[in-house]
Simulated assay, not measured.
Amino acid sequence: MISKNIAILGGGNLGSSIAKGLVKSGLMTPEQITITNLELELIQHLKDEDGFNITTDNVSAIEGAEIVIVAVKPTAAMALLNQVKEVLTSGNHVLISVISGVKIHDLEEVLGNMPIIRVMPNTAIAIQESMTALSFNEKGLEYKNEVVNIFDQLGSTMVIPEAQMPAATVLASCGIAFALRFLRAASQGGIEIGFSSKLSQEIAAQIMKGASKLIIENNSHPEPEIDKVTTPLGVTIKSLNKMEYEGFSSSLISGVVAGYNKILETES
């Protein structure tokens, strides 16, 4: 466990997922975490069901914490940071930003020279299965081991140059949606060939889990694993070739690139 308190400014899906993941990992207790939102009723369940501290007061949340995680929408970020910049101090706080599209330089312009870490997790952080990318400013590097250790408890981490953060956002964060869309499509196909909706979804979810473990645990590449189940004149290759003919791989690649270009537009 860590002894520091954390303030999470923004109790939306990502902010609450981080909080739940920290507790589920055993790294922190709910009492160490304060979550804020402008509308208290929207996060009341986080107190009633999970035991977190909640408040609408960002300043008081920061004053009671050593680590501050900003998890608001990009459109609300600068107004929030300007509101709290007087209480965010280099000697007392480490700032972790999960704001998509907001660069470390942008944060430094508002907050000055303080430890800043830009982090891009995904919502699987709530079950300790996130793929989280991290970039540090110079002062933030002093806390590199501590911060990486925190997010290592919540899945897998990769420390990258900030220039790669747009790519990490699309593949590691948005990628959850891409994978779930595949799961939904596979499940719908299962319904069409005779399974119930519930059973079809269970099958699709388990095959995704199994496929991922084959790659991660065997340190393998998809193609050799695909070759193991594609026999000559077989069902698998017939299905795969039909999917490729309909644009399966090319549409997914195009979608990843489109998302990447959208982020570059936002950040430019």
Rank of each mutant, 00 (worst) to 15 (best):
H93V: 04
H93Y: 11
H93A: 11
V94L: 01
V94M: 02
L95T: 03
L95R: 01
L95E: 07
I96G: 01
S97R: 09
S97E: 03
I99E: 03
I99A: 06
G101T: 11
G101A: 07
G101S: 10
V102R: 08
V102P: 03
V102G: 03
K103V: 13
K103I: 11
I104N: 01
I104W: 07
D106L: 14
E108D: 07
E108F: 00
E109D: 13
V110P: 07
G112H: 01
N113L: 02
N113Q: 10
N113R: 05
M114A: 00
M114K: 00
P115N: 07
I116Q: 03
I116A: 01
I116F: 01
I117Q: 03
I117V: 11
V119D: 05
P121W: 05
T123M: 15
A124C: 15
A124W: 10
I125W: 04
I125A: 05
A126L: 13
I127K: 11
E129A: 15
S130M: 03
S130P: 04
M131Q: 11
M131T: 10
T132I: 09
L134A: 06
L134K: 02
S135L: 09
K139S: 02
K139Y: 02
L141N: 12
L141T: 14
L141Y: 10
E142I: 10
K144M: 12
N145K: 14
E146N: 04
V148I: 10
V148R: 05
N149P: 08
F151L: 02
F151C: 03
Q153F: 05
L154N: 06
L154W: 04
L154H: 04
L154Q: 03
T157Q: 05
M158L: 10
V159C: 07
V159I: 11
V159E: 12
V159H: 08
P161M: 13
P161K: 14
P161W: 14
E162H: 08
A163F: 15
Q164C: 15
M165R: 05
M165W: 09
P166D: 06
A167P: 12
A168N: 04
V170P: 13
V170H: 05
L171K: 14
S173T: 12
S173C: 15
